[in-house]
């Protein structure tokens, strides 16, 4: 399966989805006016990956900012991962947040409580 690689912009994150390694990464800022358009290929890719996932998928989410329009799309991404997890595959989710960014930590906790896969909360200390 082809990897999905999208370079970041000031309003959209860097995306690296690698099926061979089983590594899913979203990093940077996600504040586009219309996030559905941006996230559709991510959700489609995961739908395909779900059919034949690695025994272990590692997910690294490291967002500096995201808007509420993105928050729904990010939940869609997590719901695909939840389905992979439910099908008895290991899914490790690492939620990175910058030092002191309680809002970002709390956002991770919100997702964790909705999708029911344990998150590893990782504080980035400069």
């Amino acid at each position: 399966m082809e990897p999905l690689i999208i370079e970041g912009t000031p309003k959209t994150p860097t995306v690296r989805f690698d099926a061979e390694k089983g590594v899913i990464e979203i990093k940077g800022r996600s504040i586009p006016e219309n996030s559905v358009e941006f996230y559709k290929p991510l959700v489609d890719w995961l739908e395909e990956y779900k059919k034949n996932p690695k025994p272990k998928t590692t997910v690294n989410i490291q967002l500096e900012y995201f808007n509420t329009s993105s928050s729904k799309c990010i939940l869609d991404v997590f719901k695909k991962l939840e389905a992979i997890h439910k099908a008895k595959n290991e899914v490790e989710i690492n939620w990175y947040y910058e030092e002191d960014d309680e809002d970002m930590l709390e956002a991770g906790e919100d997702y964790e409580s909705i999708i029911r896969i344990p998150f590893k909360m990782i504080e980035i200390v400069e």
């Binding site: 006016e33 219309n34 559905v36 808007n67 509420t68 329009s69 928050s71 729904k72 799309c73 939940l75 919100d110 909705i114």
Partner: peptide, 15 residues
């Protein structure tokens, strides 16, 4: 976040 459909206008009142 979990129950409302995302409208084309944005976050469905989350803002």
């Amino acid at each position: 976040l979990n129950h409302q459909k995302l409208s084309e206008k944005g976050g469905g009142g989350l803002g």
